[in-house]
Amino acid sequence: MRKADRLFQIIQILRRSSRPVTSAQLAEELEVARRTVYRDIAHLIAQRVPIEGATGYGYVLDPGYEMPPLMLTPDEIEAVVLGVQMVTRLNDATIRNAASDVMAKIASVMPPDLLPYIADPSVGIKPGEVSDEAMLDTRPIRRAIREGRKLYLDYRAADGELTSRVVWPVLLGYEDSHSLLIAWCQSKQDFRHFRTDGILKIEILDEVIGVSKSKLRKEWQQRRCAELLKRGPSR
């Protein structure tokens, strides 16, 4: 993560938290050493970002810290709120945190007269619980998709079969209880769907796919549509 991105993320972590955030917590989420956090906090304070705190206590961001107002319509605000509610139900901690960051960013720059659309929206999803089961860290998958690089997987299928594969990641899809990696499998020479809870080991390879993300995704979509047409309409 670039320093500029890391500094911005520190602000977002502090913004979404109602309690002091320790250097250890920041270091864990940012995946850096605590001494890096100390340097970054010092840099932000030097840039007049109103952060208060100390080692062993934690850091807080002054709630009065403001950015230029974001102009959204009530419909747009409630669309974002609904989307964030859905994402926070997913069994993926990094995505849930990202959704909370988005909501915190929007709320922090929203004009006061629009804040009620966040605090008391007219839309919502059915209440439910988020699974506490351990889930694969999906950050390597998403990174590989963005960078167009191949992945090595150790995978356990639903029937218990263990395989090792090199795949070209296309898309990470989500449902309420699980997520799926959609990828081109080199050994099968075809697109396959891998449940992330069946992935035992994952490694980003140096080898690039050599096909653009948009072209690979378009080819998957075309094949998917062709399969659905063969099956005919559902009854």
Rank of each mutant, 00 (worst) to 15 (best):
A98T: 08
A54Q: 09
G58R: 12
T73H: 00
L44K: 13
I199P: 01
E29W: 15
G64W: 03
G53T: 12
R34P: 00
A46M: 07
R217L: 14
P121Q: 06
S164H: 11
D197W: 07
R19G: 03
A24F: 06
V170N: 04
G83M: 14
Y155E: 00
L180Y: 14
E78H: 06
R142H: 03
Q9T: 13
D137G: 02
Y38R: 11
K215I: 10
D40I: 03
A144E: 07
I13F: 13
V208R: 15
A24L: 14
E147D: 13
I11F: 06
R146W: 00
Y65S: 09
T196V: 10
R217N: 14
G64A: 05
C225V: 10
Y59I: 08
T138Y: 03
A104K: 05
T73P: 03
M110V: 02
Y65V: 07
V37R: 04
L162D: 08
N97Q: 14
D132C: 11
L216G: 07
L171V: 08
Y155F: 05
A104L: 02
D137R: 05
D120A: 09
S108F: 06
I209M: 10
R149G: 04
Y152Q: 15
V87I: 13
E76M: 07
E29A: 10
Q85E: 15
D159I: 09
V60W: 05
A134R: 11
V208Y: 05
Q85T: 02
V87N: 02
T73K: 09
P69E: 14
V32K: 09
Y155L: 03
D132V: 15
L7A: 02
Y152E: 15
A119L: 04
P69S: 14
W184A: 09
L136M: 13
G124S: 14
P121F: 03
A42H: 14
Q221R: 11
S179C: 06
V123G: 01
R34D: 04
R6S: 00
E175Q: 13
A98W: 14
R217F: 12
I118Y: 04
A99K: 11
T36Q: 15
V166M: 12
T55F: 04
V49I: 15
A27H: 06
M110F: 02
Y65E: 09
L115V: 11
L26W: 00
L82F: 04
H193R: 15
R35A: 05
L162N: 09
